[in-house]
Every structure is written in structure tokens, then in C-alpha cells.
């Protein structure tokens, strides 16, 4: 868990509308900050969603996701972190 006042090293944007809910990103995520939503998206899948905190920006979820546009990964800018 990120400590308040010290920002996460990364962030992730899950495209819940295009997600097919395969769950591979959940399995792959090292800090385990992704989970499947309880609700369904318009296709009827439980999409993967980000808990909102704890992302390290490693990008592994991006690679294991079979959808080209399923996930965007961000990394904390060095200047801002300083």
C-alpha cells in the first residue's frame, strides 16, 4: 500500500469497456493491485480494474493482456518525485 504523501511509482489505466475479463493481468500483477469488478461491462464480462493505489509501473500487465488497447501503464516522473 502506498503511504499517504509519497506517491506510487506507477499507475495503470484499465480499459474496462474493452476488457474480456480473462484475468491474466490479475495473475501477472506483482503487487496484486488489479482485480475483477463485481459489475459487468457492456459485453457482459467482469472487467479487470485497478485498486487505485499500489501500482509500481512495471508494465507486466500490459504485456500479458491479450487486448492491444486494454491497458495503459504510467510511471512517476522523476522530477515530480524529487
Amino acid at each position: 500500500m502506498a503511504i499517504i504523501g509519497k506517491p506510487d511509482r506507477g499507475s495503470v489505466e484499465m480499459n474496462a469497456e474493452e476488457c474480456k475479463g480473462c484475468g491474466l493481468c490479475l495473475e501477472a500483477c506483482p503487487p496484486k493491485v488489479l482485480h475483477l469488478a463485481e459489475g459487468l461491462n457492456r459485453y457482459g464480462y467482469h472487467p479487470a480494474i485497478y485498486a487505485g493505489v499500489g501500482c509500481t509501473g512495471c508494465g507486466i500487465c500490459f504485456f500479458v493482456c491479450p487486448e492491444p488497447g486494454g491497458i495503459r501503464v504510467f510511471r512517476l516522473d522523476a522530477v515530480a518525485a524529487a
Binding site: 506507477g10 499507475s11 474493452e18 459485453y43 508494465g59 495503459r72 501503464v73 522530477v79
Partner: peptide, 26 residues
């Protein structure tokens, strides 16, 4: 804090899959 994109959909993919009859983002 400000963040920069490190991983996103490759440019070698179409933004929208217009050759597909429906569900053109997937």
C-alpha cells in the same frame, strides 16, 4: 505527482479496427 505513459497500444495497431464489421475497439 505527474506520470508519463510507458506502455500503451502500439502505433502499429489501428486505433479503431474499421475493417471489422462490429466491436471495432476490441
Amino acid at each position: 505527482a505527474s506520470y508519463t505513459v510507458t506502455h500503451q497500444k502500439a502505433r502499429a495497431f489501428y486505433d479503431t479496427y474499421e475493417r471489422k464489421a462490429e466491436l471495432q475497439n476490441q
